[in-house]
Simulated scan of single mutants.
Amino acid sequence: MTAPAVTSTARPRSAALRLHRPALIVWGVFQLLAVGALLWVHVSRAPAARADHSASYFVLTDVNNVMNLLGEVLSYVSIAVAAWAGAALVGRELEDGTARLAWTQSVTPARWLTAKLTAAALPLIAGTTLLGLLFAWVWTTDQDVLVTHWSWDRVLVPAGPLAVALAVLALAAGALAGVALRRALPALAVAAGVTYAARSFFGSTWDDVWPSRRFWPVQLTATALLLVLAALALTAAYALLGRRTNIKGAAV
């Protein structure tokens, strides 16, 4: 009996996973730390705040300070994702010629980009969803000892599908920047800047407008708009990659 053949689609995806294993490890460690911190808030700090309102204040363990810090960190994760996607996932491989080498091994440019985006998107979406659900649960359950309003960016961004949409946009922006610029550092800067602008627009810049609305209409509207932008960025990335690789063979 012969072993089943590995499809050409699976090969570039597994290669992408091997190549970016350090980034996946960092993402996994970050997930564990964030989950641990959120559970610590719920299990330890929130009950302590309820039990003794006159307890001495300590900035590093105050329940509001810890939760606000976690919200800020989670709301800015997408910018780091965009920087990594633009620089390491796409830009660097176009810059050093690794991508062209893959294209000579029966892997089309479109399939190469798809494999990279898929390998990154699956753990990114799963992890962001998990953190969003846990953050929303802790914030809702312990709201009696928290002073933040749902419209504040440190709550609005990480507590719903908006965080996942921002991560998807970050990945798409990084891919487009990497394909367009074909240089790691410029792609890093452009992708991070675009994602930061999107995060600011749908978070902090709209603080005075969001309170007049309800949580879910805001979340779903912002999420839909971000996913449309992500789809446009991905379409542009594939179109640009296809146009460049169709000119003079696989030269980019």
Results as ranks from 00 to 15, higher is better:
38 L>Q: 01
39 L>E: 05
39 L>R: 06
41 V>M: 00
43 V>D: 06
45 R>T: 03
45 R>N: 04
47 P>V: 01
48 A>C: 00
49 A>N: 05
51 A>Q: 07
52 D>V: 01
52 D>H: 03
53 H>P: 09
53 H>F: 01
55 A>R: 04
58 F>R: 14
58 F>A: 09
59 V>A: 13
59 V>M: 11
59 V>F: 09
59 V>E: 13
64 N>G: 10
66 V>G: 07
66 V>F: 03
67 M>L: 13
67 M>N: 11
68 N>V: 11
70 L>V: 14
72 E>K: 10
74 L>Q: 10
74 L>W: 07
77 V>F: 13
77 V>G: 00
77 V>T: 14
80 A>C: 12
80 A>V: 15
80 A>T: 12
81 V>K: 02
81 V>Q: 04
83 A>N: 01
84 W>F: 15
84 W>Y: 14
85 A>L: 02
85 A>V: 03
87 A>H: 12
88 A>P: 00
89 L>Q: 09
89 L>I: 00
90 V>H: 05
92 R>H: 15
94 L>F: 15
95 E>H: 11
95 E>N: 09
96 D>R: 07
97 G>V: 08
97 G>L: 06
99 A>H: 01
99 A>R: 06
99 A>N: 05
100 R>W: 03
104 T>I: 07
104 T>A: 12
105 Q>S: 14
105 Q>M: 12
106 S>V: 10
106 S>T: 11
111 R>D: 03
111 R>N: 08
114 T>R: 13
116 K>A: 10
117 L>A: 08
117 L>C: 08
118 T>A: 13
119 A>G: 11
119 A>V: 03
121 A>G: 02
122 L>V: 15
124 L>V: 12
126 A>V: 15
126 A>F: 13
128 T>N: 14
129 T>A: 15
132 G>M: 06
133 L>I: 10
133 L>H: 06
134 L>E: 05
